[in-house]
């Protein structure tokens, strides 16, 4: 019995020490690993609530590969945008859009990443960020915080000088128990103290060993609008053919 108690104590102490010793970049690397598995397929529902109280709902399928380096989004609903699709390569540095009524595929420049996705509070950059947290930001761990009685790492991320991204800094609250960022604050590109958007993630479930926030709410602090995104279904590390992430796949 004494041995078990001692073992438990040692494990607890070791994990506490491990948690204490993690640096900002190490925490973000773990977050990134969970957010961007080798492959992912999901069916999602996005509900936009405008500042005037109106709601718009979209349902779409998405596929990603190579840890989100390649990403394809295809809309299923509403009928107005049915079969419209977006293909992203190189972590959304290369974007193509497909318009089914004209069967036209158009390549977009990276500035299009700043545009709202179907009028939502998520930009294309938010959706296909991939390894942006690692590549485009320097990370610094701040004092741990408690959010709704759950212990969180707090990491502040500052944009690197050469990064072409829309935010000057992010503040990320990450659950210690599973490295899920439950709150992310996005700050203005030119005014680092001006809070633009806040992402709240909840309803965390485990799929294929990967903790997944089933609900995300992006709150636009400027426009007073919000967009809710929910996973209807999600699968990780499945076989996805590279051919899907081509112009032919985009049009299918």
């Amino acid at each position: 019995m004494k041995t078990k108690i001692l073992l438990f104590f040692v494990i607890f102490l070791a994990s506490w020490l491990y948690g204490q010793s993690l640096s900002g970049p190490e925490i973000i690397e773990k977050v990134d690993n969970y957010l961007n598995p080798e492959t992912c397929w999901a069916k999602s529902k996005m509900t936009i609530q405008t500042s005037s109280g109106k709601e718009r709902t979209f349902v779409y399928e998405s596929w990603s590969k190579n840890h989100d380096e390649k990403n394809l989004i295809r809309y299923l609903e509403p009928i107005r945008v049915k079969n419209q699709a977006t293909l992203m390569h190189n972590y959304a540095d290369d974007i193509w859009m497909y318009f089914p009524r004209t069967r036209r595929v158009r390549k977009l420049a990276t500035h299009a990443k700043k545009q709202k996705m179907e009028g939502s509070d998520f930009s294309y950059e938010d959706m296909g960020a991939g390894d942006s947290f690692i590549k485009d930001y320097t990370c610094k761990r701040l004092e741990d915080q408690s959010l709704e009685d759950r212990q969180c790492y707090l990491v502040e991320m500052h944009r690197k000088s050469n990064a072409d991204i829309s935010y000057s800094r992010l503040k990320m609250y990450i659950l210690k128990e599973n490295f899920v960022p439950v709150r992310v604050e996005y700050y203005d590109e030119d005014h680092p103290d001006r809070l633009l958007k806040t992402l709240i993630q909840s309803d965390i479930r485990i799929f294929d060993g990967i903790p997944t926030a089933m609900k995300m709410i992006m709150i636009n602090e400027i426009d007073n609008s919000e967009t809710k995104m929910e996973f209807i279904e999600v699968k990780y590390n499945i076989e996805i053919d590279d051919a899907l992430f081509t112009e032919r796949g985009l049009k299918e």
């Binding site: 158009r106 977009l108 420049a109 990276t110 500035h111 072409d164």
Partner: peptide, 10 residues
């Protein structure tokens, strides 16, 4: 051709 130059779509 379609692409990007100095951040602008061209």
């Amino acid at each position: 051709l379609v692409g990007e130059l100095f951040g602008w779509g061209v």
